[in-house]
Nucleic acid binder design. Structure first.
Length: 366
DNA sequence: AATTCGTGGGA
DNA sequence: TTCCCAAGAAT
């Protein structure tokens, strides 16, 4: 690649003319940019926008975030997924207040010390918020660079990732890393898309090796993922004497850590759904229940497996709840459920409980 | 190094 | 339906 300056000017010029108006591009506050970058990890721009607005309204400063209880952070994160991001954000905010004087660190190495900040996010905050000349590599940049340089190796392999980071560093324009980095990502989002890239409109098509060879549809090369296994899972909508419902908090780490749910768990081979539910409730909370009838079933696909979630109305028949295999429990009314952070699957159960019909609510009739 | 971690949208 | 993918990080 000889003409780097021409390449830089072409992309940056295009970006200046075509940059989308996004909330986190209206601020220079490193804290706000950090929040946006964490929310944008593995999450599309359109999904993030409303979460970002609510989050910054409630926690406008790192001090406000550090002072908040984790439960409130998780509640604002409800539905966004990858909840370790919310837990790490909260921990990192307290670190910033205690160890960095309330100011976000401005170097890649210091940023990397924060939980939830990896190489991408450190590069993004250092370049976009602090104007440092450092590279970044995300899914968009991987796609753009693998086409631009016609990279034939599997981008899922660590050796290829290392090579991509080296290329991202090499291609960086002096003093203009922020515009270049954001331009690469914007290009990947608007034109250099996964399935059918809009090469005729691309400002850097003249430099693109894959395009020259007609191979843009074959890049990047990615190894196939394994097929997802399927599990049947039960959940109990347990009603107590006064009509309140029993909910349990998941352990603080791991899958959906810190969120609340209707207690239950995975069905074992050759186990009935009812037996599964009674066993799980006994193991988690140490109480006995009677299973009365179905509420609804929910299909859901996580990253590495799929489930069918079977929810049942249950009655509490014996024992005081104990936090055995969970992080806590509460008896709550149907209205109070909204104060707690639930996974999407449990939100669908709640919608059925409130709707009264057997189905989640539909949109308005014409 | 290979897995684990959510959810929604699009082909 | 099924699979892929999205401003990745932690272990």
């Amino acid at each position: 690649m000889k003409d780097l300056t021409g390449l830089h000017n072409a992309l940056i010029g295009w970006f200046r003319a075509n940059r989308a108006d996004l909330p986190w591009r209206r601020t220079r506050d490193p804290y706000a940019i950090w929040i946006a970058e964490v929310m944008l990890q593995q999450t599309q721009v359109a999904t993030v926008i409303p979460y970002y607005e609510r989050f910054l309204t409630r926690f406008p400063t790192v001090e406000a975030l550090a002072a908040a209880p984790l439960d409130e952070v998780l509640k604002l994160w409800e539905g966004l997924g990858y909840y370790s991001r919310a837990r790490n954000l909260h921990r990192a905010a307290r670190m910033i207040v205690e160890q960095f004087g309330g100011k976000l660190p401005s170097t890649v190495n210091d940023l990397l010390r924060l939980p939830g900040v990896g190489r991408y996010t450190a590069g993004a905050v250092a370049s976009l918020a602090f104007g440092r000349d450092v590279p970044l590599l995300d899914g968009n940049v991987i796609r753009v660079l693998s086409r631009l340089l016609n990279i034939e190796n599997d981008v899922m392999e660590s050796a290829t990732r290392r090579a991509l980071w080296e290329q991202a560093e090499r291609l960086l324009p002096p003093e203009r890393a922020a515009l270049w980095n954001e331009g690469l990502m914007e290009l990947g989002q608007q034109l250099c898309t996964p399935a059918t890239p809009s090469c005729p409109r691309c400002p850097i098509a003249g430099w693109c090796e894959a395009y020259r060879l007609g191979l843009q549809g074959e890049r990047p090369v990615r190894s196939r993922r394994r097929k997802k296994p399927h599990y049947d899972v039960t959940a109990g909508v347990i009603r107590g004497q006064d009509g309140r419902l029993l909910i349990a908090r998941r352990p603080p780490d791991g899958m959906l850590g810190g969120l609340w749910e209707f207690p239950g768990g995975k069905r074992q081979p050759d186990e009935s759904l009812v037996a599964c539910l009674k066993r799980e409730i006994r193991e988690e909370l140490g109480i006995e229940i009677a299973v009365e009838g179905p509420v609804t079933t929910v299909q859901h696909a996580y990253t590495h497996f799929r489930i069918t979630l079977h929810a049942f109305y249950c009655r509490h028949t014996g024992g005081e709840p104990q936090a055995i295999e969970c992080a806590g429990w509460a008896w709550v009314t149907l209205e109070e459920l909204d104060q707690y952070a639930f996974p999407v699957t449990d939100r669908k159960i709640i919608a059925v409980l409130r709707g009264g019909s057997g189905q989640p609510e539909r949109g308005p009739e014409p």
